[in-house]
Amino acid sequence: MPSPRNSPKSSRERRAPGSRLEFLSLTSQRSSAPPESPSHRKESTASAGPPQALPEEDCMKLNPSFVGIALRSLLAVDLWASKQLGVCAGENSPWGSARPLMKAVEISGHGIPWLAGTLYGLCRSASSAGREVLLNLLFALILDLFLVAAVKGLVKRRRPAHNKMDMFATVSVDRYSFPSGHATRAAMVCRFILHHLVLAVPLRVLVVLWTFIVGISRVMLGRHNVTDVIFGLIMGYMQYSLVEYFWLSPVSAPVLFSLWS
């Protein structure tokens, strides 16, 4: 008679717990990482947040706007035309021999000669009408200096690369190019003279020609780009409207007129 120790039943009973444990261990390993339900996957996707978008500047590069393309094209044409027209930028330029003449035109549109001449005329004037015109011209010149310096400080556009920094009587803000101070001053003075001085027709034509020659000389000398001069002429033309609006008279500014009487 077989002993209980060696009976098949006892061996089955002894193996059964081991197999049960093995089965439980396998099921526990599998159950430790249960498959995610669709709702759980949806929640985890939502918690991860939306997909990261491209930076704004990269989007602009990939899909530039029409305005951006137009501005860049205009800038490229402006730089190219300014370089081609800078024929007096140096002594070795195509029109380098005309550089001294262009520099004389440059001085004629500079602020210092105009301020000095206006102050001298104001001191020598003997009529009240003449003092009124000259005092307002002085106000217009000072206003032009402040407005041009403010715009240059805001825009901070560098002068053309082919420009030689040998300009007459410059200050720190003159390292910037936009707008052309000579062009604004010439346009404003031209409009001022045509409105307040009685001149013959040839002289009036000469004043207008001087204005455009000053503007053109800025590009030929390489001091400015074409758009600097165009904007400067428009700005100077509009500045005169401010002078007319704030016109100084013995009634509105008696203290100023008492100083020069």
Rank of each mutant, 00 (worst) to 15 (best):
N225V: 07
V226E: 01
H182P: 05
M220Y: 14
H162M: 05
L141R: 02
L138C: 09
H162P: 01
M220F: 14
F146L: 03
S19W: 10
S39F: 09
R185Y: 06
S108F: 11
M102V: 00
Y240V: 14
T170R: 06
D58L: 09
A129L: 09
K61P: 05
H162F: 03
R41I: 04
W247F: 15
R175C: 03
A183T: 15
V133F: 00
L119G: 11
T27P: 09
C59S: 05
G90A: 13
N225H: 13
E57T: 12
I230G: 01
C88G: 12
L206A: 14
L248N: 07
S47G: 05
Y176W: 14
G181Q: 07
L203M: 12
P38R: 01
N92R: 14
P254S: 05
C59V: 11
P202F: 00
V148F: 04
P94C: 13
L206H: 05
L79W: 11
T227A: 07
V105M: 04
S252M: 10
H162E: 01
R158Y: 12
P2V: 10
A187F: 08
V133S: 08
L199T: 04
R15H: 13
S65E: 11
Q239H: 15
P35R: 13
V189H: 10
G111N: 06
G96E: 06
R218E: 03
T184I: 02
E22H: 08
G96R: 06
R223M: 08
P4W: 14
A129S: 08
S177M: 00
F246P: 09
P113I: 01
A186Q: 01
C123M: 07
L194R: 02
S177I: 00
R157M: 04
G90E: 01
